[in-house]
Design a protein around this nucleic acid. Structure first.
Length: 116
RNA sequence: UAAAGCAGCCGGGUAAUCGCGCUUUAUUAAAAUAAAGUGAGGAAAGUCCGUGCAUUCAAGGACAGUCCGCCGGAGAAAUUCCGGACGGCGCAAGCCGGUGGAAAGUGCCACAGAAAUGUAGACUGCCGAUGGAAAUAUUAUUUCACAGGUGAUGGUGCAACGGUGAGUUAAGAGCUUCACCGGGGAUAUUGAAAAAUAUCCGCCAGGUAAACCCCGGACGAAUGCAAGAUUGACAGGAAGGCUUUAAAGGUGUCCGCCAACUUCCGGCUAAUCGCUAGAGAUUACAAGCAAUUGUAAUACCAGACAGAUGAUUACAUUAAAACAGAACACGGCUUAUGAGCUGCUUUAUUCU
RNA sequence: AGCGGUAUCGUCUAGGGGUCAGGAUAGCAGAUUCUCAUUCUGUUGACACGGGUUCAAAUCCCGUUGCCGCCG
């Protein structure tokens, strides 16, 4: 889990990020980036796995946790690349990503962040 | 030893590093930081039942409606649990069962069949009184007509008005004739009751109530914590009244009642409360066949709001792998579930 | 999370205990036409799944599954 100040929380913020329509996709994970920053505040990240991806809550929670843990480790290591210039990031998990282990998930997220 | 049956347990462990929610304490103006504590299930699931809790309406009567249904007990209640009865399945241990009433009434019972509920019988049959006819061996036989008797016969059907066999009879029939079997009723005994056993009575009555219904019992209704309460900021629309009545609103319906100067409809946004100390949990003792109940002691054991349990490494086992994630709470039911362990019981085989 | 509805040929639907589950359209085959379309004839094809009640279940009852809606 990442600390509270780095989390994307409000419903309005999610909608605003979706509206920008700046997305990248790899290995079943989709990264959506929001607007670029004007002030010096922390970049916020949200993680979404929809109910259509899998019916069982356990499987969905697992994927969300793997994505969160990957982002947290990258945040700690300072390997976020250009993503720090954006206000918000959303990671969408799909059916394809459910089978991935932690290393592959982390690698995928690292590559997605470098593409920005 | 093998195969079954029943009851129960477990639901990964240890260590290290990084990380999260909540609570408390400390530093502090606040944010934040640090330390300590604590942090998913047996089904948290399905939402199939029942409750608490909350809001609105009512608190009266009538009708309607819904649910339950062998007997006794437990429980706040329940499509709940326990014990027993009866029926069915199994060699057995044991398991399964929505199990009141069809002799209050109504409906339905396709096709087939003479007939599908009315103690029916038109048809096919069996019997033979009476009358006619025929041939002959002339007190007999055959045939036709028709009062009548009978319900044994009928290629049906899930089901045919108790079944099988004998007796009786013109032919026949539960025919207050018999034997065995089935159902029903009465009486007696046992039992708290369901019911069981015995004796007597020819009493013999189709199925369906998971069709309407009858009987007995239970139930205020609606909406569900996204209920609802408080605080702050923003912000509308419609209707009628201001004398009464009418219209409009509320409860399943009606009467009634409420409300009357307000009423109805409809938003946007954030925080706090609701929110977890309980029809609780663990242990011991006592009562009871049991479900369960009582008493005492012990500790406080998730409470989020884009939503906390994760990641990596090491160790042993052959291999850490099942079903699965709290969102107001509780009691049940149902469904999903890997590997294994414990106890008791039954049957079969072998040995002593 | 809470609550409600629904499931019938590939698609849209009728049937609400009783004899081979009906119709439209689509598909296939044939006829008509020089060919295609139209038209006509024939044919294939379904009660979501698992139990129960009943002589008999698509229909009645229970459970499971899928889909849809309300609330947000």
């Amino acid at each position: 889990m990442i600390p509270k100040k780095y989390r994307l929380k409000s419903n309005a913020a999610f909608n605003a990020t979706y509206r920008v329509n700046n997305s990248h996709r790899k290995n079943g994970i989709t990264l959506i980036a929001g607007l670029k920053k004007t002030k010096d505040i922390p970049t916020k990240a949200g993680f979404v796995v929809s109910k259509k991806t899998h019916k069982r809550a356990v499987k969905r929670n697992r994927l969300k946790r793997l994505m969160r843990e990957s982002y947290r480790q990258l945040l700690k290591e300072g390997k976020l690349g250009n993503s720090t210039k954006y206000l918000s990031l959303i990671f969408l998990g799909s059916t394809k990503a459910l089978e991935n282990n932690f290393r592959l998930t982390k690698q995928t997220i690292y590559e997605l962040l470098s593409e920005l």
